[in-house]
Design a protein around this nucleic acid. Structure first.
Length: 485
RNA sequence: GGCGGCAUAGCCAAGCGGUAAGGCGACGGUCUGCAAAACCGUUAUUCUCCGGUUCAAAUCCGGAUGCCGCCUCCA
């Protein structure tokens, strides 16, 4: 049984059959670099990162292309409002994008082409469309004529008539059909422009993906992905352009991820509830966000809220504790791993879940079961179980890694968490250590009252003291969110 | 107006014809000066409602209700 994917085009799950045996050609629409990325971008990035990792784990050779839209109206607007060259705006946010992706352990794609470095390819495409009578020129702009492509609307599941009936399309005198879209626009004074046989100007939004996907992957390629909102018009238009210009099928499978809502509301500038990745990772471990997204199927909408994030944070800790317990056992009982059938059963189920349209929520349940299995063996009799524990742990880790989880060890994981927390409550590590020492002193004198008072004070700051054989340690109790409304 | 999606325990969430995964929480236990943490165990005779098909339905069909998305820049 192979991998099955839900294809937006057919509206069904289909057996995945690559164009070239053993290879996957994957194109995902990247970001327009005019601002820092928010957690909606993060979901898309993480979803396709997992798909990328999973195909590799299943032995495919993957060519993964994710573009940067580094020239468009929003970038120009930002350039004007901030008084910096548009090129610098783009560069700045590309750097920011990479910082965020690295923090989230999103693997770098094979290629990250920029629109502005492929203007020639776009011009060739547009030229081709004009020569074929599919595109037309009006006052220096070039439009794609949707009536000249009979498959228009197939991807988003609607017909031209239906779309016209919607009548929400803005009327533009220059267009022959209101649904026609711009391939190339003439630049206004002071705007960036490139020379072209059909007039100087700059590319429309959709054409870059048509040009770059064909260039790096060839046609047809296997999978085209992106956020659900891109189905129409972006992907519909890419498909129309490419297939009209080349006469070749564009992409075989279309995958789209669902949206992130915040407290049941759509994230939008007007509501002012956009949460940046940078703000999130200041408060929480980046893997919390990843685990949160993967706990729901990628096509479903997901609601971001404080409780869900805290639940997820707790669940992630659970996984890390297991890792820690095994590490301690291994120090004491260094043995060779021995295959353990029950763990292998779970591994099998994990792959079945992932094969079925990347059902990460189900796959995660097996990772949690592996964690529970490890804990039981450790509680039971580590001396006897050690070889099986090590085997199971290896599986546990590798399956989690395929989802991009458990990259840290527990010590690193908790220490970064703690630094975040102390900053949040305005306490220095020195001051905290002093308070802990005071309490230890009181306890030594059996002055439990004073000791408990100190514990209470700290508890109110979300710091939980834990007395262990190694002395008193602490962990985070409540996590409060910044800017929470 | 057109097209599409979703409704499963206190919360989050899989399952999509064969008799309800997993996580959080809660409760019980082990541990502890008391705790906490950690671990183990328990926690939906039932899947929004009403009909129907079937030996069998959360899963299929028809209808109702309630949410949501897209049709305009958007991950």
């Amino acid at each position: 049984m192979g991998i099955r994917v839900y294809n937006t085009f057919s509206g069904k799950k289909e057996e995945f059959r690559p164009v070239n045996e053993g290879k996957v050609k994957l194109y995902v629409c990247g970001v327009t670099v005019y601002d820092h990325c928010h957690i909606g971008h993060a979901r898309s990035a993480i979803v396709f990162d997992v798909i990328y990792r999973y195909f590799m784990a299943r032995g495919y050779e993957v060519v993964f292309v994710k573009n940067f839209t580094d020239i468009d109206d929003k970038i120009i607007r930002k350039s004007n409002s901030e008084g910096i060259p548009w090129k610098d705006v783009a560069e700045k946010y590309i750097v920011s994008f990479h910082e965020d992706m690295d923090a989230l352990h999103v693997l770098r794609p094979t290629h990250e082409p920029k629109a502005t470095e492929h203007i020639e390819d776009m011009i060739a495409l547009v030229d081709n469309l004009i020569n074929n009578g599919i595109a037309y020129k009006v006052n220096g702009d070039v439009y794609f004529s949707v009536e000249n492509y009979k498959g228009y609307g197939e991807l988003s599941g609607r017909t031209l008539d239906e779309m016209m009936a919607g009548a929400r399309v803005e009327i533009d005198e220059k267009k022959r059909n209101p649904l026609d879209f711009v391939l190339w626009k003439s630049s206004k004074e002071g705007e960036p422009k490139w020379p072209a046989p059909f007039g100087d100007g700059r590319p429309g939004w959709h054409i870059e993906c048509s040009a770059m996907s064909a260039k790096y992957l060839g046609l047809p390629f296997d999978i085209h992905g992106g956020g659900k909102d891109l189905v129409f018009p972006h992907h519909e238009n890419e498909r129309a352009q490419t297939e009209s210009a080349t006469g070749v099928k564009f992409a075989n499978y279309w995958l789209h991820n669902g949206f992130v809502n915040i407290e049941k509301e759509k994230m939008s500038k007007s509501i002012g509830n956009i949460l940046l990745i940078k703000d999130f990772i200041e408060e929480f471990h980046p893997e919390v966000l990843r685990l949160f997204f993967l706990s729901t199927h990628y096509r479903n909408p997901i609601d971001y809220n404080k409780k869900s994030i805290e639940d997820t944070n707790q669940a992630l800790h659970r996984l890390y504790y297991t890792l820690e317990r095994v590490a301690e056992m291994e120090k004491q009982l260094p043995v060779e791993p021995k295959p353990y059938g029950e763990a292998e059963e779970l591994e099998k189920k994990y792959y079945e879940a992932m094969d079925d349209d990347f059902n990460t929520a189900l796959a995660l349940s097996y990772i949690f079961e592996l964690s529970k299995m490890l804990n039981k063996m450790l509680d039971d009799d580590p001396t006897i179980n050690a070889p099986f524990v090590l085997f199971t742990n290896r599986l546990f880790l590798s399956l989690a890694n395929t989802l991009g989880l458990l990259h840290d060890n527990l010590t690193d994981f908790t220490s970064t968490e703690k630094i975040r927390h102390l900053n949040r409550v305005g306490l220095t590590p020195e001051k905290l250590d002093r308070m802990i020492a005071e309490r230890a002193e009181a306890r030594k004198n059996k002055d439990y009252k004073t000791g408990d008072q100190i514990r209470d004070v700290l508890a109110r700051m979300g710091i939980l003291l834990q007395d262990s054989p190694r002395g008193t340690e602490w962990r985070i109790k409540h996590i409060t969110m910044k800017g929470e409304g």
